[in-house]
């Protein structure tokens, strides 16, 4: 995944959330976005995932720029997968129907083909026993793992994960992070926003520190976590790791 962001600006009313942000990654598999709340990480991820249009600037994956209008953006969203912090699943559908829905209604599989497609991943992540349950009957960790699977079974080019463990307790956080680590090992490309710094260090090929509407630091994880010269980045890590 080669990501190129130029001059990216996003505003909500009078608030500038991203201010001429620039980011150029190497050809990597996993990019992790860290930084203080309200710094613009989630806003950036929503633009990367094709959910919001920026006010100005450009984003390109592998040299292909993101579309600038909603119909094309929808076509783009069908080629990627996105997982939010919570409430990803549709509460009126069982776990397996949540997985089947995009396959049938967006990707044109028959119901039988879709069921066939989701069986193996459900088994691989030990979620088959919960397939018939509605989201209200699942634990938070199970819900997030189903949500990740739903994004995955459409065979996307890459995943966008927006603080997928922030609403979970530590035990459930671990089971979701393990799943993400397993996807990394299997070659899945993703952009992850997280506050789990130890996990970020373990899984990231590159880390971008987003703060004050810009990229304050960017590089391999060791460089960002251990030897960052930027005082705002140092200050942030000193505070949260103290």
């Amino acid at each position: 995944m080669l990501l190129e962001i130029r001059d990216l600006t996003q505003r909500f009313d009078a608030t500038t959330v991203l201010d001429r942000l620039e980011l150029l990654t190497g050809d990597i598999q996993a990019l992790v976005l860290v930084g203080p709340s309200g710094g613009g990480k989630s806003t950036l991820l929503r633009i990367l995932a094709g959910l919001d249009l920026p006010v100005a600037g450009s984003v390109a994956f592998e040299g292909v720029p993101l579309p600038r209008d909603e119909p094309e953006l929808r076509a783009y969203r069908r080629t990627v997968g996105t997982v939010f912090q919570a409430y990803n699943l549709f509460p009126h559908l069982s776990a397996i129907d949540n997985l089947v829905l995009p396959l049938v209604h967006v990707h044109g599989l028959t119901h039988v083909e879709a069921l066939e497609r989701v069986r193996e991943p459900l088994e691989r992540f030990q979620l088959m026993p919960h397939a018939a349950k509605r989201p209200a009957e699942l634990s938070g960790g199970q819900k997030q793992r189903i949500a990740i699977l739903r994004a995955l079974v459409v065979r996307p080019h890459r995943l966008f994960l927006d603080e997928p463990t922030s609403a979970l307790d530590p035990e459930m956080t671990a089971e979701v992070l393990d799943m993400i680590a397993e996807l990394k090992a299997a070659g899945t490309q993703f952009v992850l926003v997280t506050h789990e710094m130890r996990f970020a260090r373990r899984v990231a090929d590159e880390v971008a520190f987003i703060g004050a509407a810009r990229v304050l630091a960017h590089g391999p994880p060791e460089e960002i976590f251990d030897g960052c010269a930027e005082p705002r980045v140092r200050g942030f890590f000193d505070r949260i790791l103290a």
């Binding site: 969203r77 939010f84 409430y87 990803n88 829905l101 995009p102």
Partner: peptide, 26 residues
């Protein structure tokens, strides 16, 4: 909740599909 519309958009549903498959049943 707005998150349901977001989730529907994220999986690539059209506005009409989102209404029919996600919003109205709830």
């Amino acid at each position: 909740p707005a998150t349901q519309r977001d989730a529907a958009r994220a999986i690539g549903l059209s506005p009409w599909q989102s209404l029919r498959l996600v919003i109205l049943p709830q």
